[in-house]
Design a protein around this nucleic acid. Structure first.
Lengths: 225, 225
DNA sequence: TGTACATCAGTGAACGCGCGTTCACTGATGTAC
DNA sequence: TGTACATCAGTGAACGCGCGTTCACTGATGTAC
């Protein structure tokens, strides 16, 4: 029931994002400028305002798209392994995370660095939704390794209520300590990748794949997977 | 043997950095602007060019100072523990890393995020020197846990030659696998801190201290410390 | 101690840039009769 | 099928902004005799 006009409109909105992403990939998140995008599209800068109210709105849309894409990639990698292969699923997720980051460093910076000068991430946006989904994915991977022993004792009140509600709905049997472990696993996956993408391993090592894989293998061992 | 003029000059150069750091702490690394600094100092923007040839030169100087300060903090924390307390020293270093990052989030972003729009880190600068020093510090902590078993087999050629030379001079008995472990330890320390500083744990947890400490305790255990 | 000169930190004005955003408008596309 | 009108995507010019950088200059501070 969508008119020709609506279709064209949606296509233009999508092309704006496509060009913006091209700029990000080429020169980093800071290079997203409405004028530059318009120039590339053969349009006037003002025209973009029919599609996005504000530059920040566009950035938000980009973050949503990129984050959703990343999560889909991770889920697909995980699901390429048998459901009962907890170890394989965890490793597939982790390696896909690094692979995506190395292949899309600027997009990684968009999500996990400073998205753009002066930009503030909106509180309840769709990026937060994608982040929740990623987090739930890791929780599922950790759940496969449960029960087990970890450092520290936790209560549900250690976590944000909204997040607790979400987790408990999806994983009714997991204790708070498992959530703590989920976040730790996430951090452990993230650390080497962030260092590598931001160039901090460059003067030590040419390729971070090997130590990242070793780290993830040992992590899987320690999780008992 | 320094003249009055030289002293004043050095003081002004230092004040420029001090004000720049204040701006970074207040509004992030992207907010460093020569004009804003000059304004705060009651000077003209052009005057800064007697002290720093370029905006990027100033940023480089800031990164050097901040990184050096961080490394000194870490070394001091480590050295507050007995030399034979390998576990205590590792934990002191790690906790000091997070504490510094949480207390100085914008400085952390300056070092580990995008320093400033359009800024490229110079190759052989003093920031690289500070990074080497940090890396050597962790190597020392890992050395205390050696020998032990880890995933993967390594050759010296897996690492950058300059870095290898440095490590072998300082720790002649360590094998390449220990260096790999050093980088992994660094990554593991960095991951949760980076996520927390960039706000990615905000919707899950109010305070990352507890899970970070648990992660570091388990890491020390796994290192056999 | 006093004078003549050199140094050099800081001024102020200018250059040229790209940016986000607004707004009155044009002209093509769609709709209703 | 043809006409009258409504919609609305995109124009182009403007606003005001802050930025890095350059440059001829002034005037105070230091130096040499």
């Amino acid at each position: 029931m969508e008119s020709r006009r609506e279709r064209l409109r949606a296509e233009t909105a999508a092309e704006i994002k496509r060009i913006a992403l091209k700029h990000i990939a080429a020169a980093g998140p800071a290079s997203v400028s409405l004028r530059a995008i318009a120039r590339d599209m053969g349009m006037t800068a003002g025209a973009i305002y029919s599609y996005y109210d504000t530059r920040d709105d566009l950035i938000t849309a980009l973050i949503n798209d990129v984050y959703t894409g990343l999560v889909q990639t991770l889920e697909a990698a995980r699901d390429s392994k048998q459901a009962d292969d907890g170890r394989g699923r965890l490793l597939a997720w982790a390696l896909a995370y690094r692979k995506w980051a190395i292949a899309n460093p600027e997009e990684f910076r968009l999500l996990y660095g400073d998205p753009a000068p002066g930009y503030r991430i909106p509180e309840g946006g769709a990026a937060a939704e994608a982040e929740r989904r990623a987090c739930a994915g890791i929780t599922g991977l950790v759940a496969a390794a449960w029960p087990r022993e970890v450092s520290g004792t936790y209560r549900w009140s250690d976590f944000e209520p909204d997040f607790v509600a979400l987790v408990r709905a999806q994983f009714p049997d997991l204790p708070p300590a498992a959530i703590a472990l989920t976040l730790r696993v996430w951090g452990r996956m993230h650390g080497l990748v962030a260092l590598e993408v931001y160039g901090h391993l460059r003067s030590q090592i040419h390729d971070g794949a090997k130590i990242f894989e070793a780290e993830m293998l040992d992590m899987a061992d320690e999780l008992g997977l």
